[in-house]
Design a protein around this nucleic acid. Sequence first.
RNA 1: GGGAUCGUAGUCUAGCUUGGAUAAGGCACCAGCCUCCGGAGCUGGGUAUCCCCGGUUCGAAUCCGGGCGGUCCCGCCA
Length: 631
Amino acid sequence: MSDNPWAFCEDQVVSLISKVTEIEPAEVRQLIEIPPDSQLGDIATTVAFYLAKKLKKNPVAIANEIVVLMREQMENHPIIRTIETKGPYINIFLNRETMAEIVLDTILSKNDEYGRTSEYAGKRALIEFPAVNPSKPWHIGHARNAILGDTLANVLETTGYDVIRIDYINDLGLQIAQLVWKLMRIPDAPKEGEKYDHYLGRLYVEVQREFEDEEAERQIREIGQQLEDPNSEAFKRGAEIVTKCVKAQNQTAYLLGIYHHYQIWESSIAHSGLLEKAKEMMLQCDSIFKMEEGEKAGCIVAKLDDLDEFKGMKEPYKVLFRSDGTRTYTGADVAFQLWKHRIVDDPFEYKELEVQPNGEPVYRTALEGEKHDIGRVDAVFNVIAAAQAHPQKLIYNILELLGYETAAKNSHHVAYEYVGLEDVEFSGRKGTWVGYTTDDVLRRARELAAEEVKKRNPDEDQEFVENVSSQVAVGALRYFMLNASPDRKITFRWSEALDFDGDAGPYLQYSHARAQRILEKAGGEHDDADLSLLTSPYEYELIKAIARFPNEVLEVVRGMNKQPKGTSFNSNRLTTYGYTIATLFSKFYDNCPVLKADGNLRAARLALVRAFRITIANCLRLLGIPVINRM
RNA sequence: GGGAUCGUAGUCUAGCUUGGAUAAGGCACCAGCCUCCGGAGCUGGGUAUCCCCGGUUCGAAUCCGGGCGGUCCCGCCA
């Protein structure tokens, strides 16, 4: 049995057209489309246009000729019912009875595995997200990153990838120096009930003002220097602060159902020997060397115009290590990227940070710990803001300079645009994120959802209300972030982000709850149903749509091509798909009674409800949206 | 200066990678729909120079060239 029923049907059509027209199947596949209106057919081909150009003949006449040939060949075809032309278009109608059987048999037998395919089986991917500074709470822009990254990881897994989810923690940045300085002056005392990351965020905004004072800045810069020494007081203090902050930030991730395998801390990159190894490798490359003269004398630089792409560049020298020997961001990032691709032996030691709510531990790199074997990696995905397209590209280009062309090719910048407010952009320094942290948004969403849940379930207890409303809140936020094309800037408005109607997460969750309710009322037993009864337009449209699920997931991964802006991840294609099947189910629900239908039809419709429930549940899990039985 | 990206109804968006039939949804607004499998739903009502100009094509929202407008990037910074 095919794990991809829609692709199976398309293949049948393609092979028939190919046979009749003697065009290669791969070419024919490019000429297949879904008609704008299902009245016109289930599958269409524009092959007549294609041949018209080649043969210099009228496409309408060609279409008519092809249809005659196709009809001759399709005697007793298992799937194709009729073929028609409409002008130059050739429209193919499938056999509804057979479709119902093929699609529902596949879904019901695959169950939780429906949607999973093996196109990328055996491949291993490493994905980094969201890499938030450990000095403040996640604002909603960070949530966008984290939700995209987590969903991409799910999607890759569904197409066969083995995925390693990592996070990067910059525990040595200026922001940490500022907080260490601040907490040397005041007691480390969050307010009653205040989350530690929110507390630091509050201090951080204060420090930005104090940083304008020259003496304060001098002291903070000095602490920044001390942070580089793992034996210093500042380092130990910083590590305490960062650990507490990261654990608080993790609570936000967990609310969203986001988990990691590893956290890579900047201090480990600095002190594990990784940098030295990487530097050594770099210096063996002809295009990376120490500048002898000029403004950048003493720096280790990459000469970028040795790559065709940068030929004729005005200032081709990119500094990797400063004249005082310290790493730049790019220098450290190159070393990190080499580690991600397993080009250098893993110098890190790992320690368990905590056990996540999914039962799995998350490990962090540490100065002392145990060795782990992360294994081979075929592709690396860095989920990073679109604004960083240039620096990301440089990192990959430098891998290329070093001779690691395959690794460079398999390095992906998964870019996404910022989340902004109506007038202002989120600014860490100005603290414009206050009131718009991910925690704030989720809390507000839970409150709104709770009102709705209470209204609908007046007899249920507080636990039920809290449980359901938090799942609705997560569903709404995750859907909101995924449904926006990553290329597009989001202007955050409460009314849109927390909308529970229409094209929104809760609508999908609701369609699942409705299907689930029908199945509960029908009782557990189900007989063999005569699925060929499912031929009404409402039933048939739903069947065709749920048949496409595995194909949709595959198409998203196949479409992840490298472009100048980065590698695009069309998360919105999957939310749109979920919305489509939920809508078709709603229409079916309103027009086709299930429990009240007679005998055979009831059994057949129940099978369809069961298949829909499986599909929407698997789709929701892919998107990280909680699957709810009652809401 | 160089580069990237976005521009689609009142509004927010999808479609552009791979050209194809009447440009598809949500929100908002109006009017209907449960003797019911849950109304977070369904049905109907309508708005668009697809930013502009040109080109390629039988065919352009989609591809190419040139503009215009918004955003972003191009440090031994962080």
